[in-house]
Design a protein around this nucleic acid. Structure first.
Lengths: 338, 338
DNA sequence: GAATAAAATGCAATCGTTTGCAATTTTTTA
DNA sequence: TAAAAAATTGCAAACGATTGCATTTTATTC
């Protein structure tokens, strides 16, 4: 029915009785073209459901208006595909990018070969890269950045790298979480998370600092180095109690998911929360307040995070200077702490 | 440093001392080219970090190897950006698409104008469209499909549309959830969800059927028609109890998120779960088993869902026949029911 | 009303690949 | 060893939009 041969700019121009150059300019509202002509062509385009061929346009302009977002998974953990915080961030990035006229190409670090600069940028699939998570090693990121590709990373802002990093104030987050627990009377606080991971390492430092200020010697046996999933947290707490009994009265978790795992293990053993053990999570995912007890946690403003990341990336695309950015972090007190 | 002018196929060919045609074919392992030449050029390409210009390639071949995934949000609900189930599905789709050599362009229904066929396909941004959710009206989907665009929808498979739909067995899910509650002695079961939404409507039918088989007259006052978020569920249960007292002893929820909201409201009022009220969720998101009590729920196999959707889409791209597909659905019994 | 300036439009090259067909080289056959 | 067949390679024309520059049209000035 409507199977006229595909509508191209040339045909549209012909329909309008102008040249393709005029048509092209008219569609972009170029003031070089008489206003009258512009509106006429624009109307015609709308009427005929015309839309510019992106492939051709990209080839010609050397610009794609696409940004690749890479979920930088920690190798074989299933974390990221599932982690609500990261996925939420993806959603926010999508909004933020759209608002600036960009589209979002989603990737994870498994595919897309190892050479991001080539795969995404030189191949003209995208104009820039947003990486979610530093992973355990920043090798790939560094390589891409070194080759001059516009790139922004969500991670630990204390890392001094050749590219802008946007992240929460992890030190402060860890500090406040811990301080709050201690101020409520906790004496033996556990840190649950993998401190080799840069962001988590910062939080651990905050954890230490809070102890120092409270004149409590942080007991390193209380620092649990585990991979960041609820399942492992659950197992860890279970095993620990089995082995040592309840030798702690507070937990600082590196994510709400981890907190949930811990919470479950404790509840199953009838440990009172917050009476026996206080728990503080991290991220403030939407479920945190639905928990019972509702989870005290450190909120990271994902919307702001997305906006800042996109901002920094656009700065690079426009050759403006860039800098690391810190996202608001705040302690949300709920019922899992006294 | 490495700022030689950008490497194109032509230059690579020159380096190798062959024509661009030969180079092009060699890179695709075309048997037309002598094996020896092929490996030589491939090696050279790897060595020089060459990668084909996607824009040019797409223009020439009229194929993008990109699939657009549209989160078809229900207008101004904040649902989808947050809903773990939908985001999980996105993650799985990404994997499934990558496995078939496609990339994933993420969109939500807010942007991308209203004319998907044009915006994504005719403009050569993508080869096909995967829609997550039917929304309240399928208008946009219908329009896109009518214009002959390859499209697959996640939704209610009972809908008879001009395009393949992949979805869970919603009738069965609703049926089993309800039947289980009734079999455990529940007498007044609430259905929590918006039955105007096609998938939810099916679940409601299953709900009815189970009642019929158990010879219990489903009391329509027990069908709560609410928008599907945990917040509204929480409010609904709160208001209801305030108004009517505890006039039910079981809840079938249309999502785990809704179940969590309900759960929270009940717990706050010290309603025993499952002793006073049994709850069954839907989706089996990763948090379901972390709840306390762990949530009985209907699991939908998202991985299978993603695989089937991609399969149906590829069928369309290859002009093979397509059909609606039903994803495995199973009752996972945990502690929120007797 | 002619000359000049300003505004509007069109020409044609270009972006980098792919591919039908023609041309060349190598192998086989008689 | 020449002719025919098979195996390799190269030529050149697309794909559809954008844009510097030239050209035409319209408005302004004297």
């Amino acid at each position: 029915m409507t199977a006229e041969t595909k509508l191209t700019l040339a045909k549209l121009a012909e329909l309008a009785g102008v040249s393709t150059s005029t048509a092209s300019r008219a569609l972009k509202d170029n003031p070089l073209i008489k206003k009258e002509t512009r509106v006429k062509i624009q109307a015609l385009a709308k009427e005929n459901n015309f839309s510019i061929n992106a492939a051709a346009s990209r080839l010609r302009t050397q610009k794609t208006n696409v940004i690749a977002v890479i979920l930088n998974l920690i190798d074989n953990t299933e974390q990221s595909t599932t982690d609500p915080f990261l996925l939420k961030l993806v959603g926010e990035l999508n909004q933020a990018l759209n608002a600036k006229g960009y589209e979002l190409l989603l990737s994870n670090s498994f595919m897309a070969s190892d050479d991001w600069a080539n795969y995404f940028i030189h191949s003209q699939r995208a104009d820039g890269i947003l990486v979610i998570g530093q992973g355990k090693t920043t090798e790939k990121i560094d390589r891409a950045a070194k080759s001059g590709v516009p790139i922004v990373v969500w991670g630990d802002t204390k890392t001094d790298a050749g590219y802008p990093i946007v992240g929460g104030n992890n030190f402060l987050g860890g500090y406040e979480a811990t301080k709050y627990l201690l101020s409520q009377g906790a004496k033996r606080v556990l840190f649950l998370g993998d401190s080799e991971h840069a962001e988590m390492g910062e939080r651990l430092k905050g954890f230490m600092q809070a102890h120092e200020e409270a004149n409590i010697e942080p007991d390193f046996s209380h620092v649990g180095a585990i991979d960041i999933t609820s399942k492992t947290a659950y197992q860890y707490i279970n095993n620990r109690i089995k082995a040592n009994g309840l030798d702690f009265d507070g937990i600082v978790c590196v994510s709400d998911m981890v907190a949930l795992g811990a919470l479950k293990a404790l509840k199953e053993r009838y440990v009172g929360i917050p009476s026996d053990v206080g728990i503080v999570g991290y991220d403030d995912i939407s479920l945190a307040e639905l928990m019972h007890p509702a989870l005290t946690t450190i909120r990271q403003n994902t919307q702001q995070a997305a906006t800042l990341m996109v901002e920094q990336l656009l700065n690079q695309l426009e050759n403006k200077p860039t800098e690391n950015q810190i996202v608001e972090t705040s302690l949300i007190v709920r019922r899992s702490t006294k």
